[in-house]
């Protein structure tokens, strides 16, 4: 017999989506902030939620899909719990950001096409410039900024965040 589950997290997330729609008065013109808020809850945009949002706003699911795929900010794949953003702008690139990217990919077994770990704990993103060139190479993990990161420090940081999750 399968263990019965009331999926509390799903139910909770779902009521948040309803709150978000309320907050923006179900206005079709607010589709972008709505999707942003939904992505905050789910860390990506699940298909069924986009369909729900579309029918709630009275626009077609194809149009919502169009908006979601236009902006690189939106992700249609689940993202990891921890987002590692490595700046690969000119200054950071010169100061060795690609070495950091290699370290992260090796440590977390990631590739360019698969930027999220299987356990959904980490996602690697590269950004074009964080505007922190003085700190090059710069890395942001979740909301925290790390400057002048060496390969060794990068590995330590990954270990540190991994330990937190255990």
């Amino acid at each position: 017999m399968v263990t019965p589950v009331v999926n509390a997290e799903k139910l909770n997330n779902f009521s948040k989506v309803c709150e978000i729609l309320e907050r923006f008065d179900r206005q079709p013109s607010k589709i972008i902030p709505i999707l942003q808020a939904v992505q905050e809850e789910y860390r990506y945009l699940p298909e069924e939620i986009m369909t729900f949002v579309a029918t709630s706003l009275g626009i077609s699911p194809a149009r919502v899909f169009g908006v979601a795929t236009f902006y690189s900010h939106f992700s249609l794949e689940p993202k990891g719990k921890n987002i590692i953003k490595v700046c690969d702008g000119t200054a950071c690139h010169v100061k060795g950001s690609s070495g950091l990217i290699d370290v992260i990919r090796r440590e977390l077994k990631l590739t360019e096409k698969e930027p999220t770990t299987e356990d959904l704990l980490f996602t690697l993103e590269t950004v074009s410039c964080l505007g922190a060139c003085g700190l090059a190479p710069a890395v942001v993990i979740n909301e925290k900024v790390f400057g002048q990161v060496s390969k060794k420090q990068m590995k330590d940081l990954i270990d540190e965040y991994r330990t937190k999750e255990d």
Partner: peptide, 23 residues
């Protein structure tokens, strides 16, 4: 789509309750 399952008793569950959450 498959609907979103919130309480899952598996395939053999005797009663299935579907609540529409459209607008």
């Amino acid at each position: 789509f498959d609907s979103m399952s919130l309480a899952d008793a598996g395939r053999e569950a005797p009663v299935e309750v579907n609540v529409c959450v459209g607008t």
